[in-house]
Design a protein around this nucleic acid. Sequence first.
RNA 1: GGGCGAUUAGCUCAGUUGGUUAGAGCGCUACGUUGACAUCGUAGAGGUCACAGAUUCGAAUUCUGUAUCGCCCACCA
Length: 1033
Amino acid sequence: MIPNRFDHAEAAPEIIRRWDDAKCGHADPSSTKPPFTIVIPPPNVTGALHLGHGLNNTLQDIVVRNRRMRGFETLWMPGTDHAGIATQAVVEKRLKEQENKSRHDLGREALVDRIWRWKDQYEARILSQLKRMGCSCDWDRLRFTLDERCGRAVRETFFDLFSKQRIYRGKRLVNWDTFLQTAVSDDEVFNETKKGHFWHFRYPVIDPQPGEPETVEIATTRPETMLGDTAVAVHPDPAAAFDAVEASLREKQSSAPEKDLAAINDEIDALRERREKMLDGLIQLRDMAAAGRKLRLPLLDRELTLVADEWAKPELGSGCVKITPAHDANDYEVGLRQNLPMINILTPDGTINASGGPYAGMTIPKARKAVVADLDELGYLGDIEDRDIELPHSDRSKTPIEPYLADQWFVAMDELAQVAMDKVNDESVRIFPARYRKGYLDWLGEKRDWPVSRQLWWGHRIPIWSVGGLTSDRCEQLTSEIESIAKQHPDQLVYRTDRDGDDSFALFVCIRDEDSPATASVESLGLSQDPDVLDTWFSSALWPHSTLGWPEQTAELEKFYPTQTLITSRDIITLWVARMVLMGMNNLNQVPFDQVFIHPKILDGLGETMSKSKGNGVDPIDVIDKFGPDALRFGLARLATETQDVRMPVQYECPSCEKLIDQTKKNRSLPRIDCPACSTPFSTQWAETDADKAFPRAAVVSERFETARNFVNKLWNASRFALMNLESFQPISVDVATLPIEDRWLLSRLSSVTQTVSDAIDRYQFAEAASVLYEFAWNEFCSFYVEIAKPRLSDEAADSDRAVAQNLMAHGLDQLLRLLHPIMPFVTESVWSYLGEIAPVRGIANATKATPFLMTASWPKADLTHQDQEIERQFSEFQGIVAAIRQIRASQNIGPRETVPVAVRCDAEASVRLKSMTSYFKALAGADVVDWGASVTAFETDAHVAIAEAGIDVHVDLEQFIDVQAELSRLEKLLQQVTGQISGKEKKLSNQNFVSRAPADVVSKERETLDGLRTQHDSLLADIAKMREKSAS
RNA sequence: GGGCGAUUAGCUCAGUUGGUUAGAGCGCUACGUUGACAUCGUAGAGGUCACAGAUUCGAAUUCUGUAUCGCCCACCA
C-alpha cells in the first residue's frame, strides 16, 4: 500500500541518486539533437546559498528540464565563483577573530591555502544545496572560476587584450580599503551617513599686495587632507557662475508646485545677497590667480598655487576650494587639468606618510585632531559647523574608504563596450523584461575604462612581468633581450615600455602561458610578476566560453556555444551580463547567449532584500526540510511574476516545539530568542562552525510554502487513487470521437493546458505556468475527473467502460506528471515509477512503453484535434448544475450522507447528454436526479437555481429537509444581487451615448444579459412567494 | 539630482489589446472525517483597485499631476 503522504525526506535522496547513476543530466557533444545550453550564474563561495539563489536556480532548472524533455541536447553548466575580494575578506576576518592574525602574519601562500580550504568547504555545501533542490546540472562538468581551465582562458584573454593595446597601465584614484589594504571597485563601496563637522580655515597669501586679502578662506569636512593640498581654486568667472545658478533656480521655480515656491524664493534671495557680498572678493581672487599669486600651506610651509577652475562653486562655502589631487576624485580631475603636483599622504595601512611631515605615522583620526588643533593655535581656524557627512565605506571590511592614487591595470572600454551595445540594440541578445535594456545600454554608453587589478592574493594573478626604474639605455638593452626570448618562443610574449618617472622607464612583459620556459628566461633578466590579481568579474566575464574549454576548440565549445539563455538577477546586469557579451564578442566574435531573463528579487516581510548580515536570509535547505524540495520550487515559481519583487514574510521555527515566530526587524538581530510557547532558547544566526552554536539554531522558513506543500500532497493522493484503481490495466486503443463527454473534456483541457504551459515557460512566465497547472490539477483533474472516475472504476461498472476509464486515467496522470515535472521533479518522478509498474504501456491512440525516467521522458504535445469548445461548454453546464445543487444543500444544511432528489429543466439535447452523467451527480453532489427535460416542473417543496446563460433550471426536492427561513434568506440574498445587477444594466442601456457609440455587439450582449437577469428576477419572486406561503401554512 | 518599478481583500499576489457583478492562495466564519487526500471537502463573509484631474459611451487598465515605498546610477569641498 502506498502511504498517504509523499515522504520527500525519504524519496528525494534516492531519486537524486538514481538520476546521478543514470547520468540523466549529462550532455553529449556528439549528439545529433539540437543543443540547449544554460550556464549557471556561478554562486560565490563566500557562503551558503540563500533563497534568492533558490529562486534563480529553480527557474533555470524549470527551463532546463523542459528543454531536455522537448528533445534538446541540454547542458546546464554548473560551477562556482571564487569571488576574489569577498572571499578573501571573509577568511581574513575569521583569521583575525579566531587567531588574531592578519594576512601578513600568514604570508601569501599560506593565506591562499586557507582560502582554498574555505572554498572546498563552501563549494561542497553549495553543491549539496543545489542537488537537494533537484538542479539537473551536468555535474561531471563542474567548473570553478579559479580552476586550471578558467585560468587558461583568463591568461589568453589578457594576453590578447594586452597585444591589442586594450589593456593599459595608469594612475587612478582608487577606493582604498585600509583594512584589507586593497583597492575596491565603486560597486563594493556603500555610503553611510555619519555626524561630522565642516571646518573653515584660512590659508595665508604670500606677500599680499596692498588691497589684497591676507588670507583665503576654505572649508572642508576632512581637515587632515590639507597635508596633501597643492592648490586652492576659485571660479574663473564668478559672476557668470552666479547667473547660471540663479537661472537654474528660476527654471525649477517655473515648474515647481505652489507649496515649494516660497522656499525657492528664499533660496534666490539668499543667493543674491551672497553674490552682493562676495562677488568682488571672488573676482579679485580670480585676478590674483591669473597673476600667478601663491598661498602658503600652514603647518607644512608648502607653496600652493591659486588656480581658476570651474570646479570651485561660488555659491558654496567660501567660494574657494582646497585641492587635494591625490585624495579626492574631483580634485584629481582639477589636478590633471591644472597640471598640479599630486602628493600622496597615506601609507597603504591608512596612516600618514612622510609627506605629512610632523604628522607622519599618525592614523587619520589622530592627524585630523592634531591638524585642527595646530591650525587653531596658529590662528587659522575659523568656524566649525556640525554636519551630516556621507562617508564611503568598504562593503567588504566595513571600514571607511580612502581615495588613494595608485598604479592600476585598465581595460579600455570604448570599442569593446560599443560592440556589446550594438549586440543588444540589434537584438542579437534579447533582454526580458525589456525595460532592463536601458540600464545595460546607459551603463555601457559611459564607456568608462575598467580597472581590473586588485591588490589581493586570492584570484587570477596578472600575467605581467615587469621591472621599473630603468635608465633609457638599460631599458633599450633589456628590450632587445626580451625580443630575442620572444623569437625563441613564438606567440608567447608581448612587451611594452613606459615612462615611470621623469627620467626612468619600466618594461612590461605579458606571458601567454605561465608554464612556458619563457617565464624563467624573463625572470632571469630581473623581471618579476605583478603581485596583483584580476578583478573577479574578469574571469566571470569569460564564463560561458571558458567553461566549455576555450581557447581550445573543444567539441563542447563547438556544440554548446553560444548558449541559449541566461537567467540572473538584476543587480549584475552591468557587472556581469554586459561584460560577458563584451568578452564573448572579443574572444569568439559571437554573443554568449541569445536571451537574458531577469527574475525578481526575494524580499523579506519588511520589503528589504535578504542578506546574511541583516539576519533575514533563508537557507533553502530549511524550507526543503520542512516542506520538501518540490514545495520550495513550486512556491518560488508561483511567485516569480514579471513585474514585482517577491515579498516573503519569514518565521523562525522553534527547534524544540516547532512553533513559528514571525521575524521582525527587532528580533532578527538578536543572538538568541526564547520561544514564546515552550521557552526554549534558540539562535537565529547561521553558525559557520560548531563553536558558534551556543544554542540550537532555529530554521528560518516561510509559511508561503504551505500552499505548495499541500499541492504536492494533493497530487500524490490523486496519483495514489489512480494507481489503486489501475489494477489489471490493459492498454486499449480508443476512438476519441466515441468517448463520453467527461473523457473528451479531459483530453480537451489537457491539450490547452499543455499549450499554455509550454508557451508560458518559453516566455519565462513561470508564475503563470505554475498557476495554470495548479488550477488544472486541483480543480479540474482532482475535483472533477477523479471524482467522476470513481463510479466508472468501481466493481459494479461494466468492464468495457472500466477499461476505457483506466486508460484515460493513466493517460491523464501520465500527461500531468510530464507537465509538472520541470517544476516538481521529485514527486512526479516518484509517481512515474509507480505508474510504470502498473501501466508501463499507455497512451491514447498509440500506446507506447514509458521511459524509465520521467526526467528524460518527452514533453507532451498539445493535440489540437482534442480541443473542443463545445465539449468544454457542455461540461461546464454539468459543473454549473453540480454547483447549484451544492449551494442549495449548503444553505439547507443537508448532511453529506443524505441524498436529495433533483430535477433539471433543460432542452432535449442537454437532457440526453446529462442523463448519461446521472451517476456523477450522485458522486459529486449527493443528488438523485429523478427527472430531465423541457417539461420538468418544480417539486412540491422546492428549491430552485436558475443557470441563465445555459437556459437550465435546477430544482431540488426539499420535502424531507425544508428549512423555510434558510431558503427564504438564500432567495432574498440572490434577489438583492440580481436586482442590483439589473439596475446597473438598465442605467447603462438607457444611456443614449452608450447605445449609439459602443460597438453593436457589446450593446446587444448587454441587452441579452439584462433579459436573462429579468427572467431570473421574476422566477426568484415566484419562488419567494411560494416559500412565504409555505412558511405561513 | 537622473532613471526604473510598485501601490488591488487582514496578508502575499494575479488581472493579456479599455467592455458582465475585479480574481487566487493563506487567514477568517459555518458545516462535514463519505474507502485518494483534514497537508481534505462544501458553502460563505471580506475590495471607493493610493489620491486628484484628464481622455472615453465606458478606466484597476490610457494620459498628467500628487503622495508613499523599493531598486539602480550619479553627486555632495
